[in-house]
Amino acid sequence: MRAMLLESSIRLNTHAAAGVTDVCIRAERLGKVIDGRMVLKDLSFEVARGMIVSVLGANGAGKSTLLKLLATLTSPTSGRLELFGRPPDGARSRARIGLVGHETMLYRDLTALENVMLTARLHGVPEARARALTMLDRLGVAERAGDAVRNLSRGTAQRVAIARALVHGPDLLIADEPFTGLDVGSCGVVERVFSEFRARGGTIVMSGHDVEQALRLGEHVLLLMEGRLASSEASHRIEASNLRKRIGGRE
């Protein structure tokens, strides 16, 4: 009797756990109005845990606004957003999100290490210094750890920004054009870091312009056109040239 009870409660637990964690992002008819202009209209989609999703679209299609919404930096005007199975609840949700922005979001007068350590400490990461150094090393910028960010090249600073976004071990990484300004070598490093992150169960939503890269890295592509979701398809079912035409056709 006791064993049976135990068993059923375990099953219930795993069931509940699966329900909570399987879907990382659920968007229902999300809309965003900025200054009377509909920037995003009626976006509905789901992102499963452990996926890499690319958001593509022409300039001004609403990619950055969508990513800001998902990062809970702004709130939707209409519709519903759920992160990790519940509506965003301020600090608790933010603790599980890493953000790589359009800008580097780094303090130019602090060193790379100080920047990453600051984020780690704000998140209450134990042994912040060691953890920050590990992250910088993983992104191949450990030897520049002591340099002020103002002296770093755009590509190096971008890699520091990615280290900063991942230092607290988030479950969801939101990256707005993370590959801009990176040379081929650094692109490889960042792609490898992203794959490792995903392999450990992390979810990535990123925007970009490079169609081949989006198809290669991400399992799923969301195509935005003038604020609407034009298509939401698995990468392996998408023709690169076709996709490029659809993005380019509106530019």
Partner: peptide
């Protein structure tokens, strides 16, 4: 460099 956004994400 948008540092405020980084701060707001903490």
């Amino acid at each position: 460099d948008g540092a405020l956004a980084g701060l707001l994400m903490a």
